[in-house]
Simulated scan of single mutants.
Amino acid sequence: MRKLDLLISRAEEGLVGLLILSASLVLFANVIARYVFNDGFSWAEELVRYQIVWMVMLGASVAARQGIHIGVDILRRFTPPTIAKVIELLVHGISVGFCLFLVVYGVQLTEQTHRFGQLSSALQAPMWVIQLAIPVGGLLMGIRFAQHFFRTLLGREQSSAQLGQVG
Rank of each mutant, 00 (worst) to 15 (best):
I20Y: 12
S95K: 05
R10M: 12
A11V: 15
R34M: 12
I70P: 02
A11R: 13
R156W: 09
I52K: 01
A122P: 01
M1R: 04
Q118T: 13
P80W: 08
H114T: 05
R156G: 02
R49M: 10
V36G: 04
L47E: 04
E46I: 04
K85P: 00
R65W: 01
S42R: 12
E46K: 05
T110A: 11
F101T: 08
M55A: 06
I32D: 10
G167P: 00
G164V: 05
V56R: 09
L90Q: 11
G97A: 14
I87Y: 13
S22Q: 06
V91W: 04
S159H: 10
T110K: 09
A29P: 08
I74D: 01
G40M: 08
I52H: 03
P135I: 12
E157W: 05
V104G: 08
L7H: 13
V129Q: 05
P135C: 10
V56M: 08
P135K: 05
L15N: 11
R49D: 07
A29E: 07
Q162L: 09
L18A: 15
P80F: 07
P126W: 08
L6A: 08
G59L: 07
L27N: 00
G97W: 06
L140R: 05
L19P: 00
G67K: 02
R115N: 13
V103A: 09
Q165P: 04
N30S: 13
L18Q: 05
I20Q: 07
G40K: 07
Y35C: 04
G137N: 12
P126L: 09
G167C: 02
R115V: 08
L25I: 15
A29Q: 06
A84T: 05
G138R: 00
